[in-house]
Amino acid sequence: MADKTEKTSAKKSGKKKDSTLSQIIQIYKFTVKDDPALPWFLAGALIAPILLAAILLFVFHMGIISAIMTVITGIMLGVLLATVTLTRRSDRVGYKRMESRTGATGAVLNRITRGGFNFPQDPVWIDMKTKDAVWRGSGRTGVYLVGEGDYGRVMKALDREESKIKRITRGSDIPIYKISVGHGERQIPLNQLQRTVMRKKIKLTKLELGVLNERLTTLQQKSSLGVPKGIDPSKVRINRRAMRGR
């Protein structure tokens, strides 16, 4: 019975290793297509800590045990640094590919779930001709209005949505943040959106956030401007795996 259990565990462990290696290979293939310098960055990240370990061995004339531990540490750090490098550069490529897709802003916002953030996938406003859109979300830091599209048109829509929110939060000091995503002078690039949203200071308790979310839900239900189903550009559901081509 014990032998069967050990064999089962060994098989599962082997599958996990194969799966991890397969994922790394897929991420590499996905990234290197748009990032030809990737192999050089990975090589540098992997080799640098190992070279540092070799230099330490040469300078301090370590004993056998210390030398072995230093080499192992250098190799582990190299693998870790290479993994981090691959992850960051693959994310950069993923965001670059997403920027050309309508609704990418909603997909990125929908991934922000930590810290009580809530960004529905569907926009609260959309121009069916230009595909400009506005998403509304909330968190313990306040209310967020995020626009995608032409800066001038989007800012007008953000101002209209801000007026609606102020009517249901009148008398409170709940902040309302307006963000325009794009590459203009006063816009935020897509790859900086998540960081921009999450770096604000906490203003609300969990209870206050719950009340706010109920009011925002009611506001959307009463809104006379709905988004026709089936035409919503935010239906581009993208997660980390999809960004890397998995």
Rank of each mutant, 00 (worst) to 15 (best):
E162F: 02
V197K: 07
A133F: 00
T85W: 00
L80S: 10
S100T: 09
G63E: 05
R88Y: 06
T70R: 02
I65W: 01
T217E: 05
I27V: 14
G103W: 00
K33Y: 07
I25P: 01
L81C: 09
S180Q: 08
A67M: 05
G139V: 08
M128K: 15
D150L: 14
W125C: 07
K33F: 02
M243I: 13
P49V: 11
K17W: 02
I27E: 05
K96C: 07
R160L: 11
S19Q: 12
I50K: 01
I72M: 06
K7F: 00
K203I: 00
S224W: 04
G137C: 01
E6F: 02
K96A: 08
E214F: 03
K206C: 02
E161F: 00
T141W: 02
K129M: 07
I176Y: 01
V146S: 12
S22N: 14
I47K: 02
S180C: 14
R170E: 01
M76I: 15
R111H: 04
F117D: 08
I126V: 15
R101G: 09
I202S: 03
I55K: 08
N213E: 10
R195G: 08
K129R: 12
P123F: 03
I25C: 05
S9Q: 10
A45D: 11
T105V: 15
L219D: 04
S138H: 09
G94P: 15
G63T: 07
R114N: 14
I55W: 09
R89H: 09
L219S: 08
Q121V: 15
K203S: 12
K166D: 05
I231D: 06
R92M: 03
R160F: 01
V124S: 13
I47F: 13
A53S: 11
H183N: 11
T218W: 07
V108N: 06
D122R: 14
G78D: 08
T70W: 01
D150H: 14
D91I: 07
Q23F: 03
M155N: 15
G94S: 02
A54D: 03
H183D: 13
Q23S: 08
M155V: 15
S90D: 07
V79T: 13
T87P: 10
L204M: 11
L209D: 09
Y95H: 14
A43E: 03
S223C: 09
I25V: 14
L225C: 04
L80Q: 04
V154C: 10
K4M: 01
R160K: 15
Y95C: 06
V197R: 06
Y28F: 13
